[in-house]
Design a protein around this nucleic acid. Structure first.
Length: 834
RNA sequence: GCGAAAGUGGCGGAAUUGGUAGACGCGCUGGACUUAGGAUCCAGUGGCCGAGAGGCCAUAGGGGUUCGAUUCCCCUCUUUCGCACCA
């Protein structure tokens, strides 16, 4: 067969007919059950993409996420793995309720319909999901076990109730999650200023796992550093001491500090406005009014107002004092809203000389400032200080501790408190317990029955699930869960004593549902258990997890927490859910703005698919940027990709008698002409590069390597038919994970009857990855002066002789002396002259 | 403020461990084939000097280490992301 300009020209009007081809293969794959998971995997690969909220349409972020995941899954199939590649729906959540209110639909109906639409859309994208493993968190057979998890946590003391201050919108009459309060401290829906309210809420005690969640980050060698850093900072471990100050009444008032070495410099204490200890103060009458007013005002301030970076601190003196146990000094007690009630004990010892916030506060209210640390080899003078000295240093004005330095000082001061019994070493975390109550309808019910006599009692496991009632009149939030207004739901007998009791009306945060979906996939139809231990053993942990970075400190922390919890219960034999994590980059609009409906700048992947087809769209997306980088959307890449695919398709359709060739064979030099042997080496180099690049999720260079090879292929005019088929068939396999329909079509045009995804990923011929003639760069003093072609086994001496023989090189070394020569085998030789 | 990452042609981006900076693609320029070309093919394409051979400069800016730096170190600037009074 001869490939000439001639026969290429006459096909100028043909191009790849993606519509028929993509539809055809999607249908056949479904018939063949190509993606059915092997229930008894020999060599398993659990490929997990983050599941989706079924809002009805899939967007570019999903498209990118699943295209990356699909590339991984298909590559692994071709490498002979038994791949588990499931998908599901994170189906509880607010928008369904809003749709219910607005369109007079049931949240169930809205959600289930969206799932249907989205599922069909995704099928058109040709992702290799095993739909038999599908889960939807809003279905009773799923949330039965979300409730089951709650009960297990409750039984272990890891689910508890506590009064908590929550965001409250007066207009919408509802609780808002933090992310539903915008940057201005206003409600995301009505833009009313958000206030605070105290409500009894359920929490999961994730802080009990803080230490392990932190330490085990070291095990996660396949996770990106930035995610681990974010989790580390989020957990925010800090070591210090808890010291008991005393009120005049004798009541203890413990504080947490990381700087016990400054304790002799305490001149006042600052208490958070919400701190419970305030009730124990005996505030003199003349201060009462001011203090109460201040507290009221502070509590009603928005988060934003309170944390505004103005540097301005304010507070009010309570007229009360506490005693410093180290020196017996009386210090003033202030209420100040720069103190957080939820961290430490809600009270801080204030050392104005050595803490910037305390310094500003003391200056403002004219509170004494006492220097107790000097820089090593220097000293501080109060009159010269315009900010606090916060570094470690030498203790002064601290009685018996004078002269101690830095961490040693911290140690000794803490030890003293321990000996005397008024303090102890303490570790605190920035991480708070996880508030999971939502006063909403569309979520997994909290399986608790509140009994006057027995308190909160978990629903018996045999009675799960507690089903969401469907006869709900309206979903409009009234400041309590809509479930609270359904007596048939609320009124039950106490499982323990049989007396009249009431259900907990709240539902769970949707992050609870998504914390364990990776386990449900393993055994998604099991009616008795969340999953079977046997299946967990077969598939866990996830080998590759792919999703967006936005879940770094939310979902991914809960996901790890639940996995550890199940490990502790003995259900899993791994205590981390995923070995490798990959965060794909965001897709933004051409101006770099996030695509959103309100900005009206959304590009629909379905529109692209309609115009270019799935495969070209996927390839273009991959080619635009490495998968972990954000993309500012443009369609420039489509042109090049479309040309490439058309060229590839044309090359195959031009072939007179296509047939499968032996892809296992390696060629020998004497079997091919020089030109073709060179092409053979390039082919093997390309196979190596594509394999390595896609291993690193570098699909952009993976595609570039294929294009580069096709350019080289084009230069060679006469190619033996068998070798030409060999080249095209291997190339088809290499592009298959990225352009599955296209590759499958080419594969079948070549006469293969079994799917290309059942074929083996090409391996490269190790004897043919190094060219026989290699280019050696000749440098003089580090500057390129000449290039010489030598045989790949040429010695350093030979190369040096050739280099010195070159006129160009001679020009630069004449009448100079060669001091030394550096030779990098196969790459360059550098002569240093003077 | 703290923490992390990044800054390369007109554009998206390559350069895996320090070894030819700009792979691949878009765009642009010229040409071929064409009634036509938004199809296809060929050639060129970082900047400056030069007819050419070739030379000089160039990876945000400035210093340093090295025979050799986009890559390592220090400083400055810019951008993005995360946390944001955590005592």
């Amino acid at each position: 067969m001869e490939k000439t300009q001639q026969n290429r020209k006459k096909t100028g009007d043909s191009f790849y007919p993606f519509r028929e081809i993509e539809a055809k293969w999607q249908e056949r794959w479904e018939e063949q059950k190509l993606y059915k998971t092997n229930p008894e995997p020999k060599k398993k690969f659990y490929n997990l993409v983050m599941f989706a909220y079924p809002s009805g349409d899939i967007h570019m972020g999903h498209f990118r996420n699943y295209s990356v995941g699909d590339a991984v899954a298909r590559r692994k199939m071709m490498e002979g793995y038994d791949v588990l590649h499931p998908f599901g729906w994170d189906a509880f959540g607010l928008p369904a309720e809003q749709a219910a209110i607005k369109r007079n639909l049931k949240p169930q109906d809205w959600t289930l319909n969206n799932i249907k639409v989205s599922r069909n859309t995704l099928k058109k994208v040709g992702i290799s999901f095993d739909w038999n493993r599908e889960v939807a968190t809003c279905l009773p057979d799923y949330y039965k076990f979300t409730e089951w998890f709650f009960v297990q946590l409750f039984k272990k003391g890891l689910a508890y109730q506590k009064e908590a201050t929550v965001n409250w919108c007066e207009t919408c009459n509802t609780v808002l999650a933090n992310e539903q309060v915008d940057a201005e401290g206003q409600c995301w829906r009505c833009h009313q200023t958000v206030t605070k309210r105290k409500l009894k809420q359920w929490f999961f005690k994730i802080t009990d796992y803080a230490e392990r969640l932190l330490n085990d980050l070291d095990k996660l060698t396949g996770w990106p550093e930035n995610v681990k850093t974010m989790q580390k900072n989020w957990i925010g471990r800090s070591v210090g001491a808890e010291i008991d100050f005393k009120l005049e009444s004798g009541e203890k008032i413990p504080i947490f500090t990381t700087r016990p070495d400054t304790i002799f410099g305490v001149t006042f204490m600052a208490i958070a406005p919400e701190a419970e200890i305030l009730d124990k103060l005996d505030i003199p009458n003349e201060y009462k009014k001011d203090v109460e007013e201040y507290i009221q005002k502070a509590i009603n301030k928005t988060e934003i107002e309170r944390t505004a970076e103005t540097g301005e601190k304010d507070g009010v003196f309570t007229g009360c004092y506490a005693v410093n146990p180290y020196n017996g000094e009386k210090v003033q007690l202030w209420v100040a809203d720069y103190v957080l009630a939820s961290y430490g004990t809600g009270v801080v010892m204030a050392v104005p000389a050595h803490d910037q916030r305390d310094f500003l506060f003391a200056k403002k209210y004219d509170i004494p400032i006492k220097i107790v640390i000097h820089p090593e080899g220097g000293s501080l003078n109060l009159d010269d200080m315009d900010e606090a000295y916060v570094e470690y240093g030498v203790m002064v004005n601290s009685g018996r501790f004078d002269g101690l330095v830095g961490s040693d000082a911290v140690e000794k001061v803490t030890q003293h408190a321990e000996n005397k019994g008024f303090g102890r070493k303490k570790v605190n975390y920035r991480l708070r317990d996880w508030l999971i109550s939502r006063q909403r309808y569309w979520g997994a019910p909290i399986p608790i029955i509140h009994c006057q006599k027995c308190g909160p009692v978990p629903v018996s496991e045999d009675d799960l699930p507690v089903k969401l009632p469907e006869n709900v009149e309206n979903y409009i939030p009234k400041g309590r869960s809509p479930l609270a207004d359904i007596p048939e739901y609320m009124n039950v007998k106490c499982p323990k004593c049989g007396e009249e009791a009431q259900r907990d009306p709240d539902t769970m945060d949707t992050f609870v549902c998504s914390s364990w979906y990776h386990m449900r996939y393993l055994d998604n139809k099991n009616p008795h258990q969340p999953f079977s231990r046997a299946d967990a053993e077969k598939w866990m942990p996830v080998d590759q997890y792919i999703g967006g970075i936005e879940h770094a400190t939310g979902h991914l922390l809960y996901f790890r927490f639940f996995t550890k919890f199940m490990y502790d219960l003995g259900w899993l034999n791994v205590d981390e859910p995923a070995l490798n994590l990959f965060n794909h980059g965001m897709v933004r609009d051409a101006e770099g703005q996030i695509m959103s409906k309100s900005l009206g700048n959304v590009v629909s992947p379905m529109e692209l698919i309609d115009r270019y087809g799935v495969d070209i769209s996927r390839l273009a997306m991959h080619f635009t940027a490495p998968a972990d980088k954000e993309i500012d959307w443009n369609e420039e890449a489509f042109v090049g990709i479309e040309r490439f695919i058309n060229r590839f398709y044309r090359m195959v359709t031009e072939i007179d008698n296509p047939e499968p060739v032996d892809l296992k064979r390696y060629f020998k030099k004497d079997q091919l002409s020089d030109n073709q042997w060179d092409l053979y080496i390039k082919l093997n180099q390309m196979i190596k590069k594509v394999s390595e690049d896609s291993d690193r999720m570098q699909f952009n260079t993976n595609i570039a390597a294929l294009m580069e090879y096709f350019n080289a292929l084009n230069q060679v005019k006469r190619i033996e038919p068998e070798f030409y088929h060999y080249i095209l068939q291997k190339s088809t396999q290499l592009i298959a994970p990225l352009a599955p329909h296209f590759a499958e079509e080419i594969w079948s045009l070549y006469g293969y009857t079994e799917s290309i995804f059942k074929s083996s990923w090409p391996s490269y011929d190790p004897d043919a990855v190094v060219s026989e003639q290699i280019n050696i760069v000749v440098q003089v003093n580090g500057k390129v002066r000449e290039q010489i072609m030598v045989s790949s086994d040429a010695s350093k001496d030979m190369i040096e002789t050739m280099a010195l023989d070159s006129e160009k090189v001679k020009k630069f070394i004449q009448d100079k002396k060669i001091i030394k020569t550096i030779y990098v085998p196969g790459k360059l030789i550098n002569m240093v002259v003077k």
